[in-house]
Design a protein around this nucleic acid. Sequence first.
RNA 1: GGGCCUAUAGCUCAGCUUGGUUAGAGCGCUUCCCUGAUAAGGAAGAGGUCUGUGGUUCAAGUCCACAUAGGCCCA
Length: 1065
Amino acid sequence: MSKDVFKKCFLPTLECGVAINKKNSINALPAQIDLPVMEAGILEYWTKNQVFEKSVENRNGAQRWSFYEGPPTANGKPGTHHIEARVFKDLFPRFQTMKGKQVIRKAGWDCHGLPVEIAVEKELGFTGKADIEKFGVAAFNEKCKESVQRHVTEFTDMTKRMGFWVDFDEAYWTMSPEYIESVWWSLQQIWNKGLLVQDHRVAPYCPRCGTGLSDHELAQGYETIKDPSVFVRFPATSGKLSELKASLLVWTTTPWTLVSNTAVAVNPKVEYQVIEITVDDKTERLVVAADLVGVLGEDRKVIATFMGKELEHTKYSKPFDLVEIENSHFVVLADYVTVEDGTGLVHQSPAFGADDLEVCRKYNLPVVNPINPDGHFKKEVALVGGVFFKEADKPLIKDLKSRNLLFKSLQFEHSYPHCWRCHTALMYYAQPSWYIKTTAIKQDLLRENSTTDWHPETIKTGRFGDWLNNNIDWAVSRNRYWGTPLPIWRCENNHEICVGSLAELGKLAGQELSKLDPHRPFVDDIKFNCQECQTQMQRIPEVIDCWYDSGAMPFAQWGYPHRAGSVEQFKAAYPADFICEAIDQTRGWFYTLMTIGTLVFDKSSYKTVLCLGHILDKDGRKMSKHLGNVLEPMPLMNQHGADAVRWYMLAAGSPWSARRVGHDAITDVVRKTLLTYWNTISFFTLYANAADFEVTEISSDLTLMDRWILSELNKLIAGVDLALENFDSQLAGSLLATFIDDLSNWYVRRSRRRFWDGDPVALNTLYFCLKNLTLLLAPMVPFISEHVWQSLIRVAQSNQPESVHLADFPISDAKRIDENLSASVSLSRRLVELGRSARAESGVKIRQPLSRALVSASGWEKISEEIKTHIADELNIQKLDGIHVAEADLVDVSVKANFRTLGTKFGAEVQDIAKAITEADHTLMVKHLRENKSFEINLKTASGKKVVSIDIDDLVVTETPRTGWSVASHAGESLALDLALTPELIQMGVVREVIRAVQEERKRIGLDISDRITVNWNAPEQIALAIIESEAEISSEVLATKMMRQSKQSNSDNELGLWLELIKS
RNA sequence: GGGCCUAUAGCUCAGCUUGGUUAGAGCGCUUCCCUGAUAAGGAAGAGGUCUGUGGUUCAAGUCCACAUAGGCCCA
């Protein structure tokens, strides 16, 4: 069907909400469906009727289920990974809404930060901060703002297309003045607690560009280079090491940092040895970790052994005397020191190493930095003054050698970060920076994490728990332009004040500032006098980490506490019942959200978190522009349909494990599940239309098949509900797919005749199943379920809600669940499979009736006559019997040990028992067991003879007739077909062939399923006799009012030699 | 370099919590069958060193250790 045709038959139904045909009965829906076209219509319907808005309003006064939208950074085009998170962010709010909760969904946009700045710099062709300053901060920030707005449009389009319901009109923007004010307020709270402080921080820094680099920039610029690696002697000058005349042996790959050497770190728990070696007749003593003495060569002697902690405060003579460093040069203890490479003694230069800085700070050691921000040693430094840091290695090594301090020098190949813009080797460089002292609230964070519900659970104590346990203070300031300005003003005498709102700032400055753009450079222009010393205060230059912005969204999205009504809005939604992002957010948003919540409110911002795995390309690699394997979301949805993509993300794999995405994979799941569902809908409408079906209560005279499918349906409702409560969309998906298969390929298949006959009970049962199935599918595949709701459910029941998404989630009726029936039907389906297998094996077509089959299976006795009829009918067999009716000596019995039961009973003896069972006379053993319930086995064991008793459950028994039968068996169940044919059976086979031929002809010439016909026919004599004899049966099957043999007509070339002509009567 | 996650059929994935002797599903492939849901459905077959190596156990895809590869985060 073409898309245009489809639109025609689809849209009118939607427009008026009722069927087009005048009887107000159900329309037959086409068997094919074009998902993308259908979805366009649904999107229109939702917008026009404000269905999303209504789904929220409908739950006014209901229990709140709070969802926080993690704002995407609008610094580029949305990718397929953005769909992934958004599918899950949509599913659970829809589900909870249907369950009766109110779920307010506020969109959000993360606007600030280096990623945006870099994108703009690229656009403008900038290479560094100097270009930005030249261009002007105001103009640059304006460009950033424009860039954000441009990309937000693309995100909005994608989000709407995929059916993610979120409120864009009320979206929060982290760059809006009221958002920034709210962030300021929270920073002031933290400031007031004394947890926002300025400190030195060692960060990767490009000396050429004059700027620090973010981690994400760092990751782009690793290059493999060769560096010198030197082992240097630091002679001890105090304590036992000095008495032993030993030198500390220190290893480093950055000799240039030795100029500012401040201390040597050892691990307190590692064993160190004083080793005496002799090289070229010179004997010396060196200190290295016991595990690393290998670096000293083979010829060595242990003089003394110390634990690292015993060496603390041992003084040594410093390697260079080029800069002044007071109260320093002794051994310090640090847990991070390892014995994996080097010597186990680590040179400390706090200006150039984050670990070094942290360790030295504990010992109150000074931070000395002999290098200018341009990467060159300060002019006044002897030997290397004015030299670029990387160039200083050579002269320094030469100098060490001349003073006999160099023990060994090698070349060392490793990957080292370079500036991704100019390829200059980066320095780790100490810069003043603002910190939030998160280490001070570490215990609170661990407490909050312990009550957080993580999915999957391993993250809680694993990745996230580890991260919290190793928590370091949050370096929150950035020396950049496009970000929330840090609201701290400082005077000449270093008095500082942290401002919490524009009103407060206005008061301080004595001017009306409520309309001030709080961004740079405007905010930098606000100056006022210090209240303590009256000198001028001006804002410090830094902006804050954009991760703080997004982590502040629980309150900042409402403009809390400044905006009117924000206090109530915040309280009603804090903490969130649900947040959901991919795993890379453990140290990102998951962390900042919990940390800011705990800092400001002493309570984490979320109760439950779903942590998704990443999606990968079809070859298992991550998607990146660099590799060119990115799947664009819009074309993906326009090709397969948003529902198809959604179903794939939700159901084809676990939410929390990484998954591959490719076109073929999506096509597969759609064909299998969504189209089967649609086909069943289409099948139903075909017969409901023909029968003028009307919905009624579930009838009391249900058939066994009806009771079975209703039992399965109620199990499904309970199962899907539980799975979705546990955020396990894969389980929900597989339960739904199994039910769709049960419904389509067993219930409908086995009940076809009832549908042909327009049986209202069957139609009503199927309708009830489809309606509930549609409700269950609605949160996962909102488009096709809405389409079915509009074109079937609301047509059949005009009193139903105007959208499936305004309906309530079904409630499972435990009274309708019948586990015994379920087990029986399940067995019957396995037996049918065996029967088909036996048919295929023997080459006797199913169209050829057979007289009898024998069944051997546990549970067979409990199977009702009605189910037996279904098996017989499906296999075209006249009579089914249990194997017990056969003469015992005609039956083969084979027996295998059931290890599961035997193993638990007998443990280690199980192998001997299994052997004894195999060797026993199976026929006798089974006979004995059936009569006496137990059977004794004589075992020969190492310790002598032993008798053990087994029962029938310890065996897997397979019984099969010995001769003249076609047998199929599996796992202890078997079915045997009696292949003997009689003339009567053969004639019945012929009749079936004829009926099939007529039906095929009916379809070929395009008759409607209810058209009555006259059949003109001819056939060879033997076939003709059979036809004449069974004329009544054939007529009724093919809706013939008359059957007339036309003996003059010649035989056709079909298998029977049958000639047919059908005339519509 | 460290931590965590993943590895099962040609492809996409279940199964592992709670070990049981013939490891499943769908798609794809081959050969058949069925025929008023028919561009659907069914059966059989080919296709698996359950990444590898050790260990625990009567028994390991499943539990443990190590290794390899990929992913994520951190250095």
